[in-house]
Design a protein around this nucleic acid. Sequence first.
DNA 1: CGAGATTACATGCACACGCATCAAATGCAA
DNA 2: TTGCATTTGATGCGTGTGCATGTAATCTCG
Lengths: 132, 132
Amino acid sequence: MAAENAEQGLVEQWREILTLHARTQCELDRALHGHGLCASDFEVLDLLAEGAAPDGGCAYRVQEIADRVHLSQSALSRLIARLEKDGLVERGMCPEDRRAVRVSLTDRGRALHGEVRPVQREVLSRMLAHTG
Amino acid sequence: MAAENAEQGLVEQWREILTLHARTQCELDRALHGHGLCASDFEVLDLLAEGAAPDGGCAYRVQEIADRVHLSQSALSRLIARLEKDGLVERGMCPEDRRAVRVSLTDRGRALHGEVRPVQREVLSRMLAHTG
DNA sequence: CGAGATTACATGCACACGCATCAAATGCAA
DNA sequence: TTGCATTTGATGCGTGTGCATGTAATCTCG
């Protein structure tokens, strides 16, 4: 039946995504581990390093980051705390909304990002090469 | 530069994969949670329900399952333990290699799989619709 | 046969994550 | 203004995962 074929195709497509994701994520984690980062950490650093935050400045709010990297708000809160403890980012007050926290890269964070980015790019080019 | 464009394309491609994976995985977990399963649990049940194990029988060894569902051997060991505690699978000795464990579906496991499969398929068709 | 290497699975441990909840700040309506 | 709902980020808690290791069975080679 056509319906069964379509369904089976869907399952295969999903399995391919799972395989590609698992392999690449695992490879990224291994490559970044030597620099004291996990893949999510780098995603956040990479976002912050882009510079252009929604407010036009160079600082993001926690929830904005969470949306971009597909993590829960609580996960992001702790991730930022870890990065701050390592001196890679800093949390600052937001004048116009004192509930909010503005997160920005420190010099050390920017330096580490510049150091690690080629490593991440290399992994991506190696893992995503035959994907079209 | 062409190199920079290629690199940027790679990053975008990876972000699309992350987005699709996160959204679908999250949706799957939510849909399956009502049945007491997480997405990995279902992957294993779905594999076991296919029937054709590498040895020609209907039972898999733990490491074989781990390879298929992209989990570590330890994660699989615990996952199988959970499913067994819930009466969905059973672990049996392997006569020709007493180190190995043969995992197979129970009737209850097969029934639950049949009940949950349409739910999973629906999520896949909804999330992967506009992906080509 | 016997000793060491290897394989298959289980388990201690640390950790990143999501959900539920909390406190503080803000927004809104009476 | 006051009172309540909403929003923002932090935290308690449970859980699923990977790494390192342990135990038992198997294999290999002398």
